[in-house]
Design a protein around this nucleic acid. Structure first.
Lengths: 292, 292
DNA sequence: CGTCATTACGGAATGCGTAATGATA
DNA sequence: TATCATTACGCATTCCGTAATGACG
């Protein structure tokens, strides 16, 4: 088999049609150049250059081989590029899980930034509830998730990417809509409250239960999706607690009310495996907004 | 820059995911294999294999590079093939000159054999009178010609590829058509004879003049092409001498008559430059029929 | 303690450069 | 005689294989 040096030698001679000039171009002397070309000819099994002491010219076989040699060397030049880009996280694939809610305010800007700063990264989106994302992360089906606590922080690392207040959503003609002040837990006394699945939307379920712990509302529904909750509210089935960004969903016939008291923060976490090695992931993490 | 050996080493390890087995496959021991892979990684500028003492696996960069490496090695495998085929004359281009007459019986079979035995040879056809072919050969526009003497045998080599008798062509109702015996020179006495251009169809011109030297026919036309001659005969403008294969042109209204006496042979020569180096030409020459 | 990748070291092979050769105009 | 590719030869580098080291289960 021939070597890449031999290819370079041949191409140089073929282009210069002169061993001396070709050797100069390759920063070497003629004799080794001669030998390299001879070796290449032996390896290929065909005479590539017709040469005597007066002229050098390509044979037809040499003409044909020159094309291949150039193609090969060009490929050598660029072969490492992709690998380097992948290594630096500038190319590759990111399998990103997200909850329907996170898509409202967080996912869009993130995707926009990704496509601007890492245009060679393909993002494959998977809409899943948080437990589904955690499952996917652990199985290696996802590289990064956008979800809510809780999760096993031994194997999963995370970072808060957004924090927003919780608010109430009530039918437009509801008495709570007319109060014109932040609602307290007590305001919900006796209200029909729509809440979340304790397993599939545990985070919102617990936020709701915690906020309303002192009053004793009737909790009937066990819904997974924020949007479903709001649609049920619009249908007059009750009131609910949702993250403030839900206001932007544009559902008609409902009113959003602030809640009284501090600390009703809804956190969205970026979650990934601690042992993840994906360069794309590492790179994406460096550009994630961090909220403390 | 990396070497092809390094690529092979990397591909072997990437496929075996085990340095020991990969080394065995490459007929070498582990240590140099390790070093080759390390060198490759340094040359590429990215870690390609994630390895500790228990497992070996591809990084994402390595995954990307593996594709390139395979493509490159495949190209290396096949790079020499075309050159070898060209060298052996089994691929390439043959620029072939021919006279209209040679096409009748010789060109077709030749082209058929070429496409069967050398399917990767492209034949580019140039219909030219013999002087035009010789010009083309000398200028390097043609590789091989099918023409008639004379030509300069110092620079051009040749071989007779067919020999056929000369015959007379006369109008169907002509008195010579009714004789029913081979015609002699004397039979043409007083006939209107159509002959050939002394420069552009010198060979047939001289054949005609030589045969008819003793009689004294009236020679009026100066035609280049055999077909034109026959059409003129059909039109009643005279009689003419043509190669026997002209019978197969299928012109109506004419009769072909044998000529008396021996040696009225029409030779067709394959002609090429003595200094021609084209492997295709060499290969084609070996399969040309040779008539002595 | 066994497995497996890596580092250490000695010897062989490859490759370059200088010098000599040969062939051509 | 001048040019230019090739062969001859000495030296440096590269690369392999054996042996030793190190890390991990």
């Amino acid at each position: 088999m021939f070597s890449l040096d031999q290819l370079s030698a041949f191409v140089a001679v073929a282009e210069e049609l002169h061993f001396g000039r070709a050797a100069e171009r390759l920063n070497m002397t003629q004799p080794p150049l001669s030998r390299q070309v001879q070796k290449l000819e032996r390896a290929v099994g065909a005479r590539l250059l017709e040469r005597d002491n007066r002229k050098v010219e390509l044979t037809e076989a040499g003409q044909a081989f020159l094309t291949e040699a150039r193609r090969l060397l060009a490929l050598v030049e660029t072969a490492g590029d992709l690998a380097r880009r992948v290594d630096q996280g500038a190319a590759g694939t990111l399998r990103l899980g997200f909850t329907a809610t996170s898509a409202i305010r967080t996912l869009g800007p993130l995707l926009r930034r990704l496509s601007e700063e890492l245009p060679d990264v393909d993002v494959i989106l998977h809409e899943r509830v948080t437990p589904g994302q955690i499952d996917g992360l652990l199985r290696g089906e996802l590289d990064l998730g956008l979800g809510r606590p809780p999760f096993d922080s031994d194997v999963l690392d995370s970072r808060i990417v957004s924090r927003e207040p919780l608010c109430a959503v009530v039918p437009g003609n509801h008495r709570l809509a007319a109060l014109g002040r932040p609602l307290t837990s007590a305001d919900f006394s006796g209200e029909q409250v729509i809440s979340y699945s304790p397993t599939q939307a545990r985070y919102f379920h617990e936020l709701t239960v915690r906020f309303l712990a002192e009053s004793h509302p009737r909790i009937e529904q066990r819904v997974q999706q924020i949007l479903t909750v709001i649609l049920l509210v619009a249908a007059g089935r009750g009131v609910a607690l949702v993250p403030a960004s839900a206001r932007h969903l544009g559902v008609e016939g409902v009113t959003y009310c602030d809640l009284a008291g501090p600390g009703q923060a809804v956190e969205l976490h970026a979650i990934w495996r601690r042992d993840a090695t994906s360069p794309v992931l590492q790179r994406v993490l460096t550009m994630l907004p961090e909220h403390h």
